[in-house]
Design a protein around this nucleic acid. Structure first.
Length: 430
RNA sequence: GCGAGGGUGGUGUAGCUUGGUCUAGCAUUUAUGGUUGUGGCCCGUAAGACCCGGGUUCAAAUCCCGGCCCCCGCCCCA
């Protein structure tokens, strides 16, 4: 045997038994998204480098992770790193879309980073976005759709951390910290849970920030408690702040959607791509914290303008399908056997295979997934095959059945069988 | 880009410390047999592995070096 060729690093195959589950997962997501009136959009897997690499597209880090290549005529291209940039391009290209434009998209994205728990170089995202609204109503809808999907997916307990970048922004400015370096502070502050307050201070010091101011900033961001409590405190700290007002409205709306219990204000988070301009979201699956955020999103009001469109506000939420699938795997939800067959037709002798095929075609046309013997196997082997695939029904056909236009329908689980007419099969099975 | 751990049939593993008894064991898997129109259990047969390259040695799955891959953490992120 020559050396084995494996799928490229960071990619993987989905075997049939996994794919069946994954398809089911997508079906659920699609159904939920459509129930909110989102419509599907599909965009190319690769985009121009001009788009993907644009300053403000995803940020320097993401830019370094883009799969970049040139086509035969020298065009600079890259595989998309998310579905938000392509959406924004689409909107920029189609300025006359009826607003709000509510689209969903389930598709792959690619990033060249180090594979580890829940991280792949090729992964699926399931996005919902609303284009054309700068109101918290849009955030509420997008979150409600995402939360409903996560609930329907039955992944267990989860909660969504919500913040608004402008709040951290305002708090930093209030302390006299440099506004243009705010992202750096965000990043450090974001590590609070991992490296602790001392670690964060150390890092800020190394980066040359004023420690006293940074410390005050850190204290001000360290608000915990119920959403109401946090809002009350923020209103005091930052009176008449637009971000705070809108967050309050957002929470109010989420209560009406009856999903507010899944949302926790957490003004320490600031993660996500560079293009976020307002509210940001990050989802934690309880018991699966090591996977990182299983769904994220936020407002990106500048992106469409960046791609040459008229400035259009937009906000969205993206489910990390592979991470969700990973939870399924941990829950043992992947079936042992892949199987889409409802009925196997077993021919007793080689001479009755023709009849078996005729019957199978009849059944397929009536919506029954049917299989016949492809390996000249004897009856025993065929039953064994049905058994090992976990197929519940078997129709046995021999000379007797062929002559009478019947089959012997056998229930493999109950080990019961009776002779029935071919025409009656469908109604019995459904 | 940086750091830790690991790589034995399709899958899970034994062996590696203390080189030879390993022409690599076990389980599972896949194929097939246990005759005549009936599966699940059982029994038999077959297929299938020491990541790659170099070194040490009379002798390497086992020790050493390099590479590749997997995996975990950092960074970043779905």
């Amino acid at each position: 045997m020559s050396e084995k060729i494996l799928p490229p690093r960071g990619t993987r195959d989905y075997a049939p038994e996994e794919m069946i589950l994954k398809n089911r997962m997508f079906d659920i997501i699609r159904k939920v998204y459509e129930s909110f009136g989102f419509v599907p959009l599909e965009t190319p897997a690769f985009e121009s480098w001009e788009l993907l690499g644009a300053k403000g597209s995803g940020g320097e880090e993401i830019k370094n992770e883009i799969y970049y290549f040139k086509d035969k005529s020298g065009r600079e291209l890259g595989l998309r790193f998310d579905l938000t940039a392509p959406l924004s391009r689409f909107v920029a290209n189609n300025p006359n879309l009826v607003k709000p434009f509510k689209r969903y998209q389930i598709g792959r994205a690619w990033r060249y980073d180090r594979p580890q728990a829940g991280r792949f170089r090729e992964f699926y995202q399931a996005d919902v976005d609303i284009v054309g609204s700068s109101e918290p109503e849009a955030e509420a809808e997008v979150l409600a759709a995402g939360i409903t999907a996560l609930q329907e997916l039955k992944i267990g307990e989860f909660y969504i951390k919500v913040n608004d970048r402008r709040i951290l922004d305002a708090l930093a400015v209030k302390q006299g910290l440099p506004e243009e370096r705010i992202i750096e502070i965000f990043r450090s502050v974001d590590k609070l849970e991992k490296i602790g307050e001392e670690g964060v201070m150390q890092e800020l010091k190394e980066k040359g920030f004023d420690l006293k101011k940074a410390k005050k900033f850190l204290n001000e961001t360290n608000i915990s408690g119920t959403n109401d409590k946090i809002l009350a405190k923020l209103k005091k700290e930052l009176p008449k702040n637009d971000a705070v007002t809108k967050l309050e409205k957002l929470i109010f709306l989420l209560e009406k959607y009856k999903v507010a219990d899944k949302v926790k204000l957490d003004i320490k988070i600031a993660r996500g791509l560079d293009y976020y301009t307002g509210p940001v979201f990050e989802t934690i699956a309880v018991g699966n914290e090591d996977l990182g955020s299983i769904a994220s999103g936020g407002r990106f009001d500048k992106l469409i303008g960046l791609y040459g469109g008229t400035d259009t506000p937009a906000t969205g939420f993206s489910l990390g399908a592979d991470r969700i699938f990973e939870i399924y795997k941990r829950q043992g939800k992947v079936p042992k056997r892949a199987n889409s067959t409802e009925l196997i037709i077993v021919n007793v002798t080689e001479e009755t295979l023709d009849y078996a095929i005729e019957v199978s075609q009849k059944l397929r046309r009536q919506g029954i997934n049917a299989e016949t013997n492809l390996l000249k196997r004897n009856m025993k082997k065929q039953l064994d095959y049905a058994n090992s695939k976990g197929i519940k029904y078997v129709a046995i056909v021999g000379e007797n059945e062929k002559a009478k236009g019947t089959v012997t329908l056998k229930n493999m689980e109950k080990n019961e069988q009776k002779e029935v007419k071919v025409d009656d099969l469908t109604s019995i099975l459904t």
